[in-house]
Write a protein that binds this DNA or RNA. Structure first.
Lengths: 91, 91
DNA sequence: TAGATATTTAGACAAATATCTAAATATATG
DNA sequence: CATATATTTAGATATTTGTCTAAATATCTA
């Protein structure tokens, strides 16, 4: 769960999520949106994947990334706790 | 706005927010919940304050910290964007 | 199988971060 | 004013993080 907050703390990774929110993209397409190198993007994708925010699927030479909504729903619950004033248990 | 995600990326700071979600606390009371030193907690409080997540108010020798809900609502909007599939514009 | 394309892994490095100790500031009170 | 209490600021340090280049892996196709 802490991994998710860590993953969201980087602006490049948040932008990747916003791109994937439109539609799934392969690694190269994602990299094209940024100035940084493909290996750096690949590193960010690993972090996003480990946090559970995205999933990947190889299709031929490409690896296609897309958002996994499940974790976003958990995040919403964490924030809801503050707005509603209910109980909370994290790590 | 990126400051908020950065602020939330540290587990100590998230725990501080959870404590303040119960009720306002002064710096010493907050520090008592943790093993780390008061200066370190003070540093975390500065980061939380700069992000807009908390506000402080001096009362005598104490400085009392409490949550500012405004930013939480903005966070909710950001997450809502993913769950609903609407448009988004950040930084 | 050889070569081209897509992507990741490995290793290095500079910048950012969390923590500490020591010192400074602010307030209250005898 | 002098001392005690609460908190922050300053400066140092070890760890983490984001980035890079070079090399490795995986897949497709001629």
């Amino acid at each position: 769960m802490g991994d998710v907050f860590k993953a969201l703390s980087d602006p490049t990774r948040r932008k990747i999520l916003e791109l994937l929110q439109e539609r799934p993209l392969n690694a190269g397409e994602i990299a094209d949106y940024f100035q940084i190198t493909k290996p750096s993007i690949s590193h960010h994708l690993v972090i996003l994947k480990n946090s559970g925010l995205i999933i990947d699927e190889r299709r031929g030479q490409n690896i296609i990334y897309s958002i996994d909504m499940t974790v976003f729903q958990e995040m919403m619950k964490w924030f809801m706790n503050f707005l509603e004033g209910g109980d909370n248990d994290e790590e």
